[in-house]
Amino acid sequence: MIKTIVMQHIMCCPKALKICKGDDKTMSNKSNNLYRFLVAQGDDAIILSHRLSEWCSNAPYLEEDLALTNVALDYLGRARLFYQYAAELKGGDETEDSIAYTRDERQYTNLLIHELPINDFAYTLLRQYFLDVFYVEYMTGLCQSSDQRIAAIAGKSVKESRYHLKRSQPWITQLAEGTEESRRRILDALTELESFVGELFEMPEWEQQLVTDGIAFDRQLIREKWDHQVQALLSASDINILDSQLKIGGGREGIHTEFLGHLLSEMQYLQRAYPGLKW
């Protein structure tokens, strides 16, 4: 269903077609796919970083405030590395900032789970845990990329994510087994987040092509491992299994939740109000 909607939208909106598909007549098909891949990775990271940064001065206690900000900074660094590579690939006037600050919702291609609001601490940490488990495996796989630069970014990312996971995993247990309230909050978060997990393992055709080319890593290969690891942790706290089948998707096609637009209008405000200036 989503696919059909996307197609219609693109037909009447040539600009979206251009950006969403990363099509650029001056670039080969392969580098188009690569560009699209880099921007998508950058989008995932920048949007999550933005969400995490919203915790700054709002965490349950000071140590946690500093720790969450470190995670936000890691993702911000990751986003910049992917964007910088993409910008170089494209050449011209493109920079990490023009990629981050001058595209609209429909041109952003992050997977939806990254853009959901921070809600409460349980929600933020459960999302983080899901993503930490995912990124440890995914970035490990991506380290094998034949593209040296991607492999290097992945190598850096996997170290970060391993540390993030060390932090988030005990939090899930503590909250699940802490008080009635904390358990209820984890269960509520789970109900909502569950629907957004499946998209992490989706492989659009262009990404599959990059796998064939030895550049990208096949997300589907780690799904079982992810399921197994997450289920094991949750069931140790008597929480029932989770379904990682695709339920809600569309991020890679620029179909988002309504939350993203507000995030972007805040993030991009200065660049949009005063275009083309240096800050």
């Binding site: 700054c56 900000t69 470190n70 911000l76 900032d97």
Partner: peptide, 23 residues
Amino acid sequence: WITRAPSLRRKAILLAKVQDEGG
């Protein structure tokens, strides 16, 4: 201004700085 910093470099600097204040 963290969520409104006008460039990625400035965003990183500001985030790190505010975190330092917490530290």
